[in-house]
Design a protein around this nucleic acid. Structure first.
Lengths: 193, 193
DNA sequence: ATATTTCGTAGACATTTGTCTACGTTTTTT
DNA sequence: AAAAAACGTAGACAAATGTCTACGAAATAT
């Protein structure tokens, strides 16, 4: 079965019939994004959200010094995009690119609104995603303001072990708000214990 | 008119009729919470979300050293609660208390679910709040992992000027993930410019 | 197969931020 | 009105984290 179909089935209490699913799917644009290619660039408006069927992506902010700060990491069955830009149609401050070759399903804001009207299961899915996202970001903020680099890393390993094989350490360091050098130190210290 | 009625009118595209509003309001428990009293304590399950009619509250995490880390600040027309605990019925790791004497409207998870069924305007409101919250927390995370203390404070002053008169500096420092001493330094430096 | 890039680690040093103590002012409580 | 608590600032010092350079190993491109 189609990965998006399974995904909805898993997350929503109701489902979409197999006949309807063709209509549902017709709102998505299938696309391959090769490693290092962009889904979104700084200054653009985020026209599409991407459901990742296969591959890995990252969202990051580039500061005045030109340093990348990883805001989000995504793998299969995650949605990549900048919500603020997508909803408000304002220029994004983020870049999103493929860390591995990707297969994605793109959808516009208009299609999202249509599909939520038409398919209650999809509406329910989006609500749950928002809820989960709110909970997850709250945890991340708590970690960010309360913990040392060492604890933040330990927490990350606990909560997102699946990212460890997909992204190198300097990317994870950036996600945690530290440099690769500091993460290296932290790991050495933690290992000694 | 009732503050919650105005609030819904402002945020949702549809509204609730004045007769229905009595029914709507009957799901809320009106309560006064005096300064320093708790809405939620560490280890409890968050049974109620609170709509703040009047006053100011804060949510914080207490670490092993006993230090408070401010996770959220709330004033009039904000919702206070721990979403994770509220939704999953798990013990919260946060404290929420009143920073000023408060008037709040409490609502249970069950009532939320009922009201979203019964009042499309309320459902729409909650969706928008989640959306806004997602956008806001994303910004906060970006600030937290990318900016120096000085920039984070400047950003805070820009985005939340209404908090400046309601909460003292050491609370704002904690919200930004720094100590009161560091915030004091940062402000001195910024002033010299 | 070779060259190039990416990656993780290391150490020396700089900068930022935290810790602690102290003090004067303001606010709150008694 | 007096006492106590809360608040902001300051300075000396400590700890955490960042910056930079270098190097070898691994992965990738040519």
């Amino acid at each position: 079965m189609h990965p998006l179909f399974n995904y909805i089935k898993e997350y929503a209490s109701t489902s979409i019939s197999e006949e309807d699913f063709d209509i549902f799917l017709s709102h998505f644009i299938k696309k391959k994004i090769r490693k290092k290619q962009y889904l979104l660039e700084d200054g653009e408006i985020c026209k599409y959200f991407a459901f990742i069927v296969k591959g890995a992506m990252r969202k990051y902010y580039i500061d005045e010094k030109g340093i990348e700060h990883i805001v989000n990491l995504y793998i299969e069955n995650w949605w990549a995009g900048d919500r603020e830009s997508f909803v408000m149609s304002t220029p994004s401050i983020y870049h999103i690119d493929a860390w591995e070759d990707c297969e994605v399903l793109l959808i516009t804001r208009e299609s999202v609104l249509e599909l939520t009207q038409q398919f209650p299961a999809f509406n329910e899915l989006l609500l749950k995603l928002d809820e989960r996202n709110n909970i997850a970001t709250q945890r991340r903020i708590t970690s960010s303001i309360s913990f040392t680099a060492e604890k933040r890393y330990a927490d990350f390993v606990d909560c997102h072990p699946y990212f460890l094989h997909r992204f190198p350490q300097h990317i994870i360091a950036s996600y945690l708000g530290i440099t690769k050098d500091t993460l290296s130190q932290v790991r050495r210290k933690a290992f000694k214990k």
